[in-house]
Design a protein around this nucleic acid. Structure first.
Lengths: 265, 265
DNA sequence: TATAAAATCGACGTTTTATCGGAAAAATTT
DNA sequence: AAATTTTTCCGATAAAACGTCGATTTTATA
């Protein structure tokens, strides 16, 4: 969010190339499934594809640099906790590095030992929670067999996780989500993952027959994510609806019902 | 986006009170309509309510301070144009006041004569375009008589306006929209207006019989705005779908069809 | 416990934001 | 149209936040 002047525009295209090709992976990924044909072979292929997708997402490396001492690991955690509190309280742009350092009980220069800029820090803060969400979802989704159930759970859990971690959600949904995409950060890939899961399940939904096959799956994803995110954002801002868990469930069920309505006509 | 330290939290509640009561206005507004009953009386009441809503929105005052000299009005416009370019190019947080001033052909201190901070400036930049959108919509909506047609046009025009003014849209959708709500700015009220129009039309849709009356209208609004915004954001980031106008039309028609499907079952 | 590596911090330089007093330009009055 | 007032503009400079560096302390480990 801060600093240096004339990067921009190009930036979205620069960065670690090894990850830039991810979008393509997904294409190939899904194409494979579709090429197989109908029948039961699909079911097992699909199942393993689903598992490996979640596997990959859950095991996404957190950070490149790993701290050697226990003390340092504690410090890193303290910085992240402090940053979350301060960012959520003051907003990223109004937050000062000095405040975060003080909140973490360290000096400003020590903080710079861990993060090279405020922007860098801001993009790292939401990561651990996002990883936790995926893990939590992975565990809960194990019992669900159909894509419909999995998608429903995913949307419901998204809203509920935001309710449980309001500071984090505020930071992610109100400050970072849209703008993070312009730069090629680790966080961006995690958010891309978030979308990929839904896209996967939508395409599965077509195979299962409850999503209209003639609709653009990306458009469908936009409807699903858009609706749920809008609900979360409204709650974060106004604490309305009061019961986000119930509203999230209602929204998720409604959206899925809407998709089903498109088929049976 | 920049500056001062320990405001926050409370800020959302502070500010010019004269406008803080707007949400309530809308409630009263719609309640009046509903209290009237069925029949044809409704139609004319509704029509005037619709007109006065658009009227009010279009005539929202732009700024409190009005420049006295022509030269100064030109300068103000140059600042806004420069700010839009620089913000869209570098992102708000990376943009420097000095750059914007230089781009506008004035000194830094002169810029501060017009805007007391970068944040202040950032919140003012999107306003004029938003006003233009409302005006444009007002003109185009005149020929539409049903709420269904009006809503369709509204959603379609939203996407298309973003396409036509990509720099502005990038600033608004990717940098400001979510986070603007935490503070009580003029821009916030304009964005609230944006939502109010949709809420109004949804409630009209119930009266017209093509929106399910048992669904929470706020939830319906979230679905509509969420879907369209998500589409716009994706386009701003990736320029996909390539043809935003067509995709916007498709999305709008689909969303409305989805609402209609909820009724006829 | 000696040694190297890792982590911390205070002091300091840089960049960006913001202010202030007066000069220049435009509007107004006489 | 000259004098006066108001508005606009800018250079100099203060204030604040960002970021760096070398010296010092702490930790791991041999």
């Amino acid at each position: 969010m801060p600093t240096q002047g004339s990067k921009s525009e190009t930036e979205a295209c620069i960065g670690r190339r090894s990850r830039s090709a991810r979008g393509v992976d997904l294409e190939a990924f899904v194409a494979t499934k579709e090429a197989v044909g109908e029948s039961e072979q699909v079911a097992s292929d699909t199942a393993s594809a689903w598992d490996s997708l979640l596997e990959e997402i859950a095991h996404r490396p957190k950070r490149a640099t790993e701290r050697k001492q226990d003390r340092a690991k504690r410090t890193e955690q303290q910085i992240l906790n402090a940053a979350l509190r301060v960012f959520a309280r003051d907003g990223i742009s109004r937050s000062r590095i000095a405040d975060i350092a003080a909140e973490a009980g360290i000096s400003t220069s020590t903080l710079y030992e861990y993060y090279k800029s405020k922007e860098d820090l801001a993009y790292d803060v939401p990561l651990s929670h996002l990883a936790e969400f995926f893990e939590s979802y992975h565990a809960n989704a194990a019992s669900r067999t159909s894509a419909r159930e999995r998608l429903l759970l995913y949307l419901v859990m998204s809203a509920d996780y935001a309710r449980e971690h309001a500071e984090w959600a505020r930071l992610l949904y109100l400050e970072i989500w849209p703008s993070v995409f312009v730069s090629d950060t680790e966080l961006r890939h995690s958010i891309d993952d978030f979308t990929r899961v839904i896209l996967f399940l939508v395409k599965e939904g077509v195979a299962e027959g409850w999503v209209a096959p003639d609709r653009n799956p990306y458009e469908t994803v936009a409807v699903l994510i858009g609706g749920v995110n809008q609900l979360i954002i409204t709650w974060l801002l106004y604490r309305k609806p009061k019961n986000l868990t119930r509203a999230g469930t209602e929204m998720a069920e409604r959206l899925i019902a809407m998709l089903e309505n498109e088929v049976r006509r």
